[in-house]
């Protein structure tokens, strides 16, 4: 009797939903430092040092630049503490060499992410 009241498909569905939601929030809690890292290379796949990488916010309502960093000597860059979920990355060095912007979509605000594909400088020219 007790069993049929507390363990049935309604309570199970409800419990599973709650548990999934809790786990998901736990995952968010530990992964939302807003770290976004990646690499900038040129067309010959050589790392580009000291390139500017601009991060722009893109939502259904706004598009605006939010942050900017420079790459180190191995071409790596790293943003920290952004609170965005839909953004564009653009790398440039000097005036002429600008890569086409890269769209990055995240599952929650400030999700930590490492870009697998490097940004390629001058790829659109």
């Amino acid at each position: 009797m007790l069993k049929s009241i507390f363990i049935n498909r309604y309570t199970m569905t409800f419990t599973v939903t709650i548990v999934v939601a809790l786990l998901w929030n736990l995952f968010i809690l530990f992964n939302d430092s807003g770290i976004l890292s990646g690499r900038v290379v040129d067309r010959n796949n050589q790392p580009v040092a000291d390139a500017r990488v601009v991060l722009s916010e893109k939502t259904l309502l706004v598009t605006a630049p939010r942050d900017e960093v420079k790459t180190d000597q191995n071409g790596y860059f790293r943003f920290e503490g952004h609170r965005l979920y839909h953004l564009y990355l653009e790398a440039m060095k000097g005036d002429a060499r600008s890569s086409s912007s890269r769209e990055v979509r995240l599952y929650f605000k400030g999700q930590n992410k490492k870009l697998k594909e490097p940004l390629v400088l001058g790829s659109d020219r």
Partner: peptide, 12 residues
Amino acid sequence: PHLFYYVDVWYT
């Protein structure tokens, strides 16, 4: 398929 439209709704 991707779930990013759902993310858009959640935050917009």
